[in-house]
């Protein structure tokens, strides 16, 4: 039952129109409805609202190493200045960009390939899809240890295999080399998350109307043209959301670099999050780390804007 709203002209508003209740009155009128969301609001204010506020506050202070916050000292924008002008910030940002862009790109491309290949009935399709999804559901900690073992400098199976096949003369020390460490971690990250892109895009492919593909076929489009002109436009929305979620996840990555290399060697795998964690809980400099967080925060807000936009586009289309 749709609500019948008069669209036809001619409905002249009568003079006895009740004044639109003001915001407060409406809130009071709906207090009953708020009861449903109150628990969620309370929990989130406590665990989300307050921390955001506190992080921003701390970012303007120099905090004592014993974390007695009554002794913190106001330093204005000093923390920000120190971070933004430091060489390490530039290096870490560079690593973060490489990490995020390369991981996202390959996760999306592999996910798209897998989704397209899985988008037809064949024997074992369900099993295959399930197997490909396993890395996504298992713990990143377990995954990191498994890959650390695969990459092991002396007994790692990858090194042994590359010697076996004659690529190198002796096992490569993947994680202790500043040139190979970051790419090695990116491979693990892609391994962990490409199937997320796959499953999203697979669901997106269900929305491509079969009739349209047939029509294109009748119109003489070949496989590539059908993909490019019919399938891809339908995947645009899903792709946007998927890529945004991947970017956000990758910017927020912590476990893989932290467990596999701890940011090393020589900072080669240090990204924003590991840097913040190290600053806060390694060197106990909460003020500095908070400022760092706020910077990250601002980047996230910008991305969040696009995220919400991508999500609500669907909603608007639905209500039309």
């Amino acid at each position: 039952m749709t609500i019948d709203v008069a669209h036809q002209g001619g409905a002249v508003p009568a003079p006895s129109l009740r004044r639109r209740p003001n915001l407060l009155r409406r809130i009071v009128r709906h207090w009953n409805d708020y009861a449903y969301i109150a628990p969620a609001i309370v929990v989130m204010l406590l665990v989300i609202g307050y921390p955001i506020y506190y992080t921003v506050e701390l970012s303007f202070f120099k905090t004592p190493p014993n974390l007695a916050m009554s002794q913190k000292v106001f330093v204005g924008f000093d923390n920000y200045r120190a971070i933004l002008t430091s060489q390490s910030f530039r290096d870490v940002t560079y690593n973060t960009l490489i990490w995020t862009v390369v991981s996202t790109f390959f996760a999306y491309v592999l996910g798209l390939g897998a989704a397209l290949a899985l988008n037809r009935e064949f024997l074992g399709r369900g099993v295959l899809r399930a197997v490909l999804l396993v890395p996504y559901v298992i713990s990143a900690v377990a995954a990191s240890y498994v890959w650390k073992w695969l990459y092991h400098s002396d007994f790692g199976v990858i090194g042994a295999l590359s010697v076996q096949f004659g690529f190198t003369d002796e096992p490569i020390n993947f994680l202790d080399n500043i040139y190979t460490a970051l790419p090695s971690l990116i491979v693990v990250n892609i391994w962990k998350e490409f199937s997320f892109a796959m499953i999203m895009l697979l669901a997106g492919l269900q929305t491509v109307p079969d009739q349209l593909l047939r029509a294109a076929q009748v119109d003489g489009a070949n496989t590539w043209q059908r993909f490019w002109h019919v399938t891809m436009p339908h995947l645009k929305g899903v792709s946007m959301v998927t890529i945004l979620l991947l970017v956000v996840t990758n910017l927020n990555s912590f476990i893989i670099p932290w467990i596999m290399t701890g940011g090393g060697p020589a900072g080669a795998t240090d990204i924003w999050i590991t840097q913040i964690y190290q600053m806060a809980f390694g060197r106990i400099r909460f003020g500095m780390a908070s400022a760092y967080s706020v910077i990250l925060f601002i980047v996230m807000m910008a991305l969040g804007y696009f995220y919400v936009k991508a999500l609500t586009r669907g909603d608007e289309a639905k209500s039309e």
Partner: peptide, 14 residues
């Protein structure tokens, strides 16, 4: 929804 966007580490200290 925005909660999805924020890294765990940002919330860690507070």
């Amino acid at each position: 929804l925005l909660r999805n966007m924020f890294p765990a580490v940002v919330f860690l200290m507070p």
